[in-house]
Design a protein around this nucleic acid. Structure first.
Lengths: 99, 99
DNA sequence: TAGATATATCGGAAAAAGTCGATATATTTG
DNA sequence: CAAATATATCGACTTTTTCCGATATATCTA
C-alpha cells in the first residue's frame, strides 16, 4: 500500500469532488438514465460536471483508480467508474492506528 | 478544515516518517536525554535522523504544523514538536464518513 | 555585549503535478 | 467497412513542490 500515491490522489480539489459526486450517483448524475448505476458513472458525465477537459478527467480517474478509491468497468464504448468503499475504510483505519 | 492542505502535508515520505518517529520519541530520539519528552522533540534531533538540511526540516515541520498534525513549543533556544493525536482521529473520521 | 547555538525565512534550481489540445484506440451502428 | 462516439494516451506548457545554501532572528552564556 503506497501511502504517498494515496495521499497525492486526494490532494486535488477536482479529484476530491469526483469522489464526493460518486457517493450519490443518482443525485449527482441524473442525466445518466439508461444503464442504471450498478457499474457506476461514465467518464463523459463526470467530465460535464467537472468543467475540465476530457483528457484531464480521464487521467484523474486513473489516478483515483490507481490509489484504489474507485474501480472501473468497461461496458461497450463506455467506461464506468464507481467508488470502492473498502479503500476509504482501510485508509481511515490506517490513519487512526498506523500513521 | 482544508483537506487539500492536509493531504498535501501527508504526500511526502520524509514528512510521513517524521510523524512516525514522533509516535515514540523515547525510542526514536534517545539522544535527547535532558528535558524529557513532554514538549516533544527538538528540530535538530529530527534533522539528524532525517538526513535533510536544517532549512528543509524546519519547513517540513511547519507544513505538518499548519496541517494540524503536530504542535510546537519554544523552550529557550529550542523548538519542540510533538504529535497532536486529535488531528489523526479527526482525519480518520472524516475519511470514514465525509470523504 | 560578543560569540555560539538553534531555528526560521528567503531565493533559487530541479523535479513533479496540473492541465490542455491533438491524436490514437476501442466500440457501436448504419 | 466507414463514420460516429467514448475513452485513453501523448507532448507541451505552466504551476507547484522539493530541497538546497545563504542569511536572518532568537536565545543562551562567557
Amino acid at each position: 500500500m503506497d501511502y504517498i500515491e494515496i495521499f497525492k490522489a486526494l490532494s486535488n480539489k477536482s479529484r476530491l469532488q469526483m469522489l464526493e459526486w460518486l457517493k450519490e450517483p443518482e443525485i449527482n448524475f441524473p442525466e445518466q438514465i439508461n444503464s442504471g448505476f450498478e457499474h457506476g458513472v461514465c467518464v463523459g458525465q463526470i467530465q460535464a460536471k467537472a468543467g475540465l477537459t476530457q483528457s484531464t478527467v480521464s487521467e484523474y480517474l486513473s489516478i483515483l483508480q490507481r490509489a484504489g478509491f474507485i474501480e472501473s468497468k468497461r461496458v461497450g464504448q463506455w467506461t464506468y467508474y464507481k467508488r470502492n468503499e473498502e479503500a476509504f475504510t482501510a485508509l481511515s483505519k490506517i490513519i487512526e492506528s498506523n500513521l
